[in-house]
Nucleic acid binder design. Structure first.
Length: 435
RNA sequence: GGCCCUAUCGUCUAGCGGUUAGGACAACGGCUUUUCGAGCCGUUUACGCGGGUUCGAGUCCCGCUGGGGUCACCA
C-alpha cells in the first residue's frame, strides 16, 4: 500500500475543460504511478452557479478519458456541519472571529501581520509571501456556507490528502491555506502547482480560444487516448524524445519533478496529428464503430448504407482524416446525392470536349461491367486509356472530378466502387450532358 | 498598480558548467504515386537583453524587459 492520496476537486459550475482535465490527469497519473489513491471531491458550495448538468458532464468526461476514481464521491455541500464545527473551534480558540455585516454574520480568520509564509512547491521550489499582503480570511460566509479556501483545507486534511496537485492559478491561495492549516494545528500536504494551459494569445485558455470542453472534442472525433497522450505532453515529457505514448507508459514514467514551470499553448495541430496516429493504427472494424457512432450523432446517413460498405469507406479514408469534421467533409460525395464541384477542378478537368467524350466512353464501358470491383474498374480504365492512346491520368482526373466534385480523393478505383455502379453511371452522364 | 510565478525554434519540449543546442507538431522541398493523404528522406527556424561568477554559461547570481497568474462572503 502506498501513502499517496490525491484528489481532483472540480466545482460543477461548468463543463470539464482541457485545463481541468489535465489537472485531473496529473493527479490520476501520480496516484497510479505510486499505487496511491485518487479521489473525487465536488466543490459545490456556490449554490448559484452549481448545476447537476455540469456534474454529470464532468463525471462522464472523466470516465471517457479513462480516469477512474477511488471510493465514494465527496460533496462539499453535504459537509457543512464539518466546516462549521471547525470554524467554531477556531473562534473559541480565539484564532477567528465573528463579523457582523449587512448580509449577516461571517467568520474570519485572524492573520498576523509581518509574518512570512514559506512553502516548498514540488514544481516551483520555494515560495514565500508576507502576510501583510493578505486580509483576514473569510472562513464561513454569512449564508452559512464555507469559502473555498476553508472548505478545501478542512477536507484535504480530513481526507488525508498527501499531495495537492492543482493549477498554477492557485499559487496565490496556498499561503492563505497554509495559514488555515496552521490555525487548525494540522501539517499541510505537499503542493505541486502545474502550469496553466494557454490559448494562442498566451492568456489562460478559455471559451474564446475555441473548443475547450472535453465533450466537444469527443464529439469532434478525438479519441480519449489521443487526448490523454496530448495533454500529458503539455507541461510534462518522458525526456526520451517519444511523443506517442500509451497511458500505461505515461503512468510508468510520470513524475511531478519533471513538470515544467511555464504555461503551455494549446496546439490543436499537434492534437490533430496525434489523433491521426491513433486513427491510423486502429483496426478497421473498431475504427468503423467509432466513425459510425459519430456519423449517427451528426445525422449523416445514406440510403444504400450498410456495414460492409462503411468499412470500405473508413478504410479508404483511414489515412486521410484526423477528426470527424474532416472525414465528413472529404467523404461527402459518398453520402450525398448531389455532387458539389470544386470550381477550379471542374474548370481544369471538365471543360474540354475531349475530356467529356472520354468520360462518356468510360460510362459505357463501366456500364458493361458486372463485377464492380476495384481491379475490374482499373482494368477498364487502363484498357480504355490504351485504346485511346492517352495516359490513364487523362481519364482518371476528369473522372475523379465528375464523380466526386473534388480533385483530391482516395484512389479512384476504390472510390468508383464505393460510389456504386448506378451512381457512377449517372454522375458520368450528368457531367457529359453539356455535350 | 501591489504581490507571486515565469523566460530554449512559430508551438510542445530535451538540456541540469564544456553539446555540431536534440526530438515532435507546423511550414517548406524531394521520393513514391491516378490526385490527395499516409509513408520515407531532407531543409528552414531557438537559448529575450545587460551585467557578473567561472578557464569555460542555455545551464549559477543580479538587474532590465517581456509574458502569465492573483488580488471576492467564486472556486
Amino acid at each position: 500500500m502506498s501513502d499517496v492520496k490525491v484528489r481532483f476537486a472540480p466545482s460543477p459550475t461548468g463543463f470539464l475543460h482541457i485545463g481541468s482535465a489535465r489537472t485531473a490527469l496529473f493527479n490520476w497519473l501520480y496516484a497510479r504511478n505510486h499505487s496511491g489513491e485518487f479521489i473525487l471531491r465536488i466543490e459545490d458550495t456556490d449554490k448559484e452557479r452549481s448545476d447537476n448538468r455540469f456534474l454529470d458532464e464532468i463525471l462522464q468526461s472523466l470516465k471517457w478519458l479513462g480516469m477512474a476514481w477511488d471510493g465514494e464521491i465527496y460533496y462539499q455541500s453535504r459537509r457543512y456541519n464539518i466546516y462549521k464545527e471547525a470554524a467554531d473551534r477556531l473562534v473559541s480558540e480565539n484564532k477567528a472571529y465573528h463579523e457582523e455585516t449587512e448580509k449577516g454574520r461571517a467568520i474570519r480568520l485572524k492573520i498576523a501581520k509581518e509574518y512570512v509564509v514559506v512553502f516548498y512547491d514540488i514544481v516551483r521550489d520555494r515560495i514565500e509571501v508576507n502576510s501583510n499582503t493578505l486580509d483576514d480570511l473569510v472562513l464561513m460566509k454569512s449564508d452559512g456556507s464555507p469559502t473555498y479556501n476553508f472548505a478545501c483545507v478542512v477536507d484535504d486534511a480530513a481526507m488525508g490528502i498527501t499531495h495537492v496537485i492543482r493549477g498554477d492559478d492557485h499559487i496565490a491561495n496556498t499561503p492563505k491555506q497554509i495559514l488555515v492549516y496552521q490555525a487548525l494545528g494540522i501539517k499541510p500536504p505537499k503542493f505541486a502547482h502545474i502550469p496553466l494551459i494557454l490559448g494562442e494569445d498566451k492568456s489562460r485558455m478559455s471559451k474564446r480560444h475555441g473548443a475547450t470542453s472535453i465533450q466537444e472534442y469527443r464529439q469532434k472525433g478525438y479519441m480519449p487516448e489521443a487526448i490523454v497522450n496530448f495533454i500529458s505532453l503539455m507541461g510534462w515529457s518522458p525526456k526520451d524524445n517519444r511523443e506517442k505514448l500509451s497511458v500505461e507508459q505515461i503512468i510508468k514514467l510520470f513524475s511531478l519533478k519533471s513538470i515544467v514551470k511555464t504555461g503551455a499553448v494549446f496546439n490543436i495541430k499537434k492534437l490533430n496529428w496525434l489523433n491521426g496516429e491513433y486513427i491510423r493504427e486502429r483496426p478497421i472494424p473498431e475504427l468503423t464503430d467509432f466513425v459510425q457512432a459519430l456519423l449517427q450523432q451528426r445525422g449523416v446517413t445514406w440510403q444504400d448504407y450498410d456495414r460492409q460498405w462503411l468499412e470500405g469507406v473508413v478504410k479508404s479514408f483511414q489515412t486521410r482524416f484526423c477528426n470527424i469534421d474532416e472525414f465528413i467533409e472529404k467523404s461527402r460525395f459518398l453520402f450525398e446525392n448531389e455532387v458539389i464541384f470544386d470550381r477550379q477542378a471542374k474548370e481544369q478537368y471538365l471543360s474540354l470536349t475531349v475530356q467529356l467524350e472520354r468520360l462518356k466512353l468510360l460510362a459505357r464501358r463501366l456500364d458493361a461491367v458486372n463485377d464492380f470491383s476495384p481491379s475490374a474498374v482499373e482494368a477498364v480504365i487502363r484498357g480504355l486509356s490504351c485504346e485511346l492512346g492517352v495516359k490513364p491520368a487523362e481519364i482518371i482526373h476528369p473522372a475523379r472530378v465528375a464523380l466526386t466534385g473534388a480533385s483530391a480523393t482516395p484512389g479512384i478505383f476504390d472510390v468508383i466502387c464505393l460510389i456504386g455502379k448506378k451512381r457512377v453511371i449517372a454522375r458520368l452522364h450528368d457531367a457529359c450532358s453539356v455535350l
